[in-house]
Nucleic acid binder design. Structure first.
Lengths: 142, 142
DNA sequence: GGCAAGTAGTTGTACACGCAACTATATCAG
DNA sequence: CTGATATAGTTGCGTGTACAACTACTTGCC
């Protein structure tokens, strides 16, 4: 059963990644940042948001900055902090990828269920979070 | 929602991996092989079973063979094939890890639900598989 | 039999990630 | 103000994985 779970996630992610050029992790970052005030986020929060270690995020943001999707901006309040800021190119890329992504999700996942069932699933899932959080310990939640 | 899903899997896996010495992937292989007839499996089937590419599996089995958990055995019927065979040490390691693993799963996951809910979840999950399989497409047959 | 095409598994290479160590800044105690 | 401790982020290094190219064997067609 756990295995089914893993397989599903994996297949889903692989497909989504293949459909548009963006790796899913990049897409994920773009979504998070675009939802943040001023289109920018602290590295730390971003790391939580995309479920990555700090070092992982540093490198991910590096790659995305190299591609012009993000920019590093200094933080005025805290000189040791950094923002990842969405660039116009990043926003454009996101706007372009989002419909593809959403429709893929819908096709592979949502379509299989009725609204009731989705609600059920959501409810059941939520209940697992506390336990897994206690074990995995990840500060943020979506 | 997808994110919750990913987070859960990840937290769960991380915890299980930490509890006993075995990485989860090793454990997974041991379980699969131990369930196979004669305690041995073709590399190809094993790769499917643990959701790994062939090359990934080759190396995983290498590592496990180095640790004495598995052995490589030639296949009589098909000279290009290989079996991964469970060694006594591998079986012992599995027997030792299994209770730990199962109780961790129970604690983190099953405990949160009633039997009915588990049945629901299982049913809903199964329905996603066809779609994800069509997308993920894994070369070997089962 | 002999060659083409397919299949099982391995190896070279590159990439993404985590951990631990590090720098730089902030915060707090005295 | 000074030093101890904590926090934000980066870097070095090791690990695990996939992809692509490869070898070796099998199968099917001529």
């Amino acid at each position: 059963m756990l295995r089914v779970h893993a397989q599903l996630t994996k297949a889903l992610d692989a497909n989504l990644e293949a459909v548009h050029g963006l790796p899913l992790s990049h897409y994920d970052v773009l979504v998070q940042v675009s939802n943040a005030p001023d289109q920018r986020m602290r590295m730390c929060e971003l790391a939580d948001g995309v479920l990555l270690s700090r070092s992982g995020l540093t490198r991910l943001v590096d790659r995305m900055a190299k591609d012009g999707l993000l920019e590093r901006c200094a933080c005025e309040d805290d000189a040791r902090g950094s923002f990842a800021c969405l660039t116009p190119a990043g926003r454009a890329r996101l706007d372009e990828a989002r419909p593809t992504h959403l429709s893929a999700v819908r096709e592979l996942f949502l379509q299989t269920f009725t609204d009731d069932e989705l609600a059920q699933l959501a409810g059941l899932w939520q209940r697992v979070l506390p336990a897994s959080a206690a074990a995995g310990d990840c500060g943020c939640d979506s």
